[in-house]
């Protein structure tokens, strides 16, 4: 706690600063005073107030939720398969979602149904379906075999990527091709209050559940056998982790597209800062992941106004050097 508190507080302060800055930056000139007014004395007729509350805030929150979800899932995944290279997409979530979204772009003549935009729905179905297959193939007699799941996940992801390529190759119009490519780059521009609820609920439930199970996670890093002898129900906790990863990642990817690197890097950063067994690790990890994407989205819009460049490019550009620095610090160890 003594180590975690300043770091958690620091992350929180940075996050609030990031959100506040994010609310100020946009096409319409905005002062800090206007941001305050929009938040606390909202005037529906004022275009700037409207933009702040209905465009900038949902966008920032979606960026935050996506980053937090991916970092959270990445942390769990690394603990689940006990491998430093694991990221939340190992279950085939990203490639499954890509396949689902690509299907919708190529097969559907009408992408909206009763006012509902269908690609995120297809992406969600795709990611869950693929996760299910990976889990079925990666388990034996109801027992999850992480190493096997890892391999199945990697193999299936390659297959799905090939399928997406095949769909792109067979698509008979340039516009379908464009849709698939744009989707795969990810982004937060379609953020809307109405679609923030799902990823937020999934993430909150996951965070609460695993806050109480954090000690089990730490023990699991010692290896399944030792965890078992220390009284952890390894089988149950693995299934819980798997469920949380697939739902939380699935919602994040469905609404924002597959943003890379956050889920791999942020968990390591958290461990480098807090150590491997701190009970606030998951919360810090989610906060850091969210903060990271909020900042990356700001940078992307600052470099390439107004729409910003795909956020995945920015995450790698600014994240990798920092990541390498952390990994090379002599006291960092994965487990």
């Amino acid at each position: 706690m003594r180590k975690a508190l300043p770091i958690l507080l620091g992350l929180l302060v940075l996050l609030i600063l990031g959100l506040f800055l994010g609310l100020k930056v946009g096409s319409l000139d905005t002062s800090y005073a206007t941001v305050f007014e929009a938040l606390f004395a909202y005037d529906a007729q004022n275009g700037t107030h409207y933009s702040i509350l209905h465009l900038r805030l949902p966008r920032l929150l979606l960026a935050f939720l996506t980053g937090a979800s991916l970092a959270f899932s990445g942390y769990l995944m690394q603990a689940l398969v006990n491998n430093a290279l694991a990221d939340p997409y190992l279950l085939g979530t990203a490639s499954g979602a890509s396949l689902g979204a690509s299907f919708s772009f190529v097969l559907l003549t009408d992408l909206t149904f009763m006012g509902l935009y269908l690609p995120p729905f297809f992406a969600l179905v795709g990611s869950f379906a693929v996760t299910l297959v990976v889990v079925l193939l990666g388990s034996r007699r109801g027992q999850l075999v992480p190493s096997q799941m890892l391999l199945v996940g990697v193999a299936l992801s390659s297959l799905l990527t090939a399928l997406v390529s095949l769909i792109m190759f067979l698509s008979d119009s340039e516009s379908q091709l464009k849709s698939v490519v744009f989707w795969s780059m990810g982004g937060f521009e379609k953020a809307d209050w109405s679609n923030l609820g799902y990823p937020a609920t999934a993430l909150a439930a996951g965070l609460v559940l695993f806050f109480f199970l954090q000690r089990h996670l730490s023990v699991l890093l010692l290896g399944a056998d030792r965890a078992e002898t220390l009284g952890v129900d390894v089988r149950l906790i693995r299934w819980l982790m798997l469920g949380a990863i697939s739902v939380v990642t699935g919602f994040a990817v469905a609404f924002s597209g597959p943003v890379g690197f956050v889920g791999l890097m942020v968990p390591h950063i958290t461990r480098a800062l807090l150590g491997t067994t701190n009970r606030f690790n998951l919360i810090a990890c989610a906060l850091a992941g969210g903060l990271f994407l909020v900042v990356c989205d700001l940078i992307s819009r600052w470099i390439y106004p107004p729409a910003g460049m795909p956020v995945g490019i920015v995450t790698s550009f600014f994240g990798v050097p920092f990541f390498v620095y952390l990994l090379r610090r002599k006291n960092y160890r994965f487990s």
Partner: peptide, 11 residues
Amino acid sequence: YPALTREYILK
């Protein structure tokens, strides 16, 4: 053919 945000179009 630039990409625009909703806010830019509102403006």
